[in-house]
Amino acid sequence: MDGTVGFFDGHNDALLRLALYARRDPERSFLEGRPDGHIDLPRARRGGMLGGLFALYAPSATGLRFDQFRGTSYDCPLPPEVPLADAQQIILKQTSILTRIVAASEGQVVLCRSVGEIRSAIAADRFAIVLHLEGAEAIDADLHALDVLHAAGLRSLGPVWSRTNIFGHGVPMRFPSSPDTGPGLTAAGAGLVRACNRLRILVDLSHITEQGFWDVARLSDAPLVATHSNVHALCPSSRNLTERQLDAIRDSDGLVGLNLATCFLRPDGQMRADTDLDIVVRHVAQLIEHLGETRVGLGSDFDGAVVPNSVGSVAGAQAIFRALAAGGFGSDLLQKFAIGNWMRVLALTIG
C-alpha cells in the first residue's frame, strides 16, 4: 500500500478526556498536542484522520476500570445512573470545549451538521467533527435538551451507554455473554427514537441490549448503525453483534464501525494492548461477509479503551490500513472502509 489513507472515524472520547484531564486550556491541548490520551489535532493529521464523530459522555460517580476486564470470564456491574443535572453539567462543559476548539482553530476545525459540510471541510483540508451523544442522561423526558443540543450541532445519539437511564437499558461489560441481557427501550426511549428520526439524528446501537436493538429496529425509519461494535462470533462479548443483528443492519442499509478496544476484538475478551492486528483483519472480513462492502467503517473508541500497541494512538492509525492491505483488501475497498461508507450512511441519516 502506497501513501496515506485518509479516514473518518465513527467514535472517540476525546472531549471527555479533555474535560477531565487537560492540565491547561483544553482547546489548546487538542489543537497543539497533549502528552496523554489517543487524539489531538497534530496526531490526527499524522495518522490520516480527516474527521469523525466526537462523543459527549457523562461518567458515573463510580465507573469501569480496565482491570475489571481480566480473567477467563468477567461480569462488570452496571455503573450507577447519572442524575440529569450532573449529566447536563458535564455535557455542557464538553460542548463548550468543542465550541472553543472550533473558534480557536482559525478554520482548521469545523463542526459539521451534514455530509455536505463534512465533504466541504475535508476538501478544504479542515478537520471535520460531527457531534455525538453517548448515552442520553443529559436529555430530559420532555426532550427539551434534545432540541437545544440539536441546535448546537448534535447529529448522532446513543440512547444508552452501558447502564440504565430513563430511555432504556444498556448491556453490561460481560464476557462471555450474549447481548440479550435485559429489557430494551422504555416508552420515553421510543419517543426519543422517533424524535431523532424527525430531527435527522443518527441513532447509535452500540451499547444497547439486544432487546433494545430490536425495539429501535421496529421503531426507526432510518438505517441501523452501531458506531463502535464488533462481531460476536469472533469475540463473545455482550457488547458485540450477533449474526441476526448484523443481518438486520444489512437489510436496513446501515453500518457497523469496527471498534479497536481489544476486549471486543480478542477471542478471550481481554483488555490487553499486546493484541495482534490480525484479529482486526478477521473482524473486518467477517463484517464485510455479513454486511457487504458498503456497510463497514472504523469506530476506533480512541480515548475510551485499550487499543493494540501497533496502533497506539490516532497517529498510528495507518497500521490498520497496512494490515488490511496485507490481508488482501484492495485500494477501492480500503477507501470504502476508510471514509466512503461513513459518508454514505451519514447522508441517509443526518442528511
Rank of each mutant, 00 (worst) to 15 (best):
V193Y: 00
L199W: 03
R119I: 13
L143K: 07
R200M: 05
A136S: 11
A152P: 01
S177N: 06
I118C: 14
A145T: 09
A141V: 14
L149I: 07
S156V: 06
E117S: 14
W161V: 01
L133G: 04
D147W: 12
H169Y: 15
E210L: 08
G182Q: 07
V115I: 11
V203Q: 12
T164L: 08
P172L: 12
R174D: 02
N165G: 08
A151H: 15
W161G: 00
A151Q: 15
R194S: 14
A141T: 12
V193T: 07
G189N: 02
S120D: 15
L154S: 05
L199M: 13
P172G: 12
R174E: 04
E134D: 13
H207Q: 12
A187C: 04
R155V: 03
I139V: 14
L143M: 14
T164V: 09
A188W: 02
R194W: 01
I129C: 14
T181R: 01
A124K: 13
L149M: 15
D147H: 15
H207D: 04
S162Y: 03
A128Y: 10
N165E: 05
L154F: 08
L143P: 00
R163F: 01
S156I: 06
S178H: 06
L154R: 09
S206Y: 05
S178E: 08
V160W: 03
L111P: 13
L202W: 12
S156C: 13
D142T: 13
A145I: 09
G170I: 00
V109F: 10
N197V: 07
E210G: 07
V171K: 10
V160G: 03
D125Y: 09
P179L: 04
A128V: 11
F175T: 07
I122M: 08
I208N: 04
I208D: 04
A123L: 05
I166P: 02
I122W: 02
V193N: 01
D142G: 09
P159L: 04
G184L: 04
G168F: 02
L149E: 02
H150N: 09
P176A: 08
N197Q: 10
W161E: 00
A195C: 11
S177L: 03
G135L: 01
S120K: 14
A190L: 15
R194T: 13
V130H: 12
G135W: 00
I139W: 03
R198W: 06
T164C: 04
G153E: 11
N197Y: 10
L111D: 13
A136N: 01
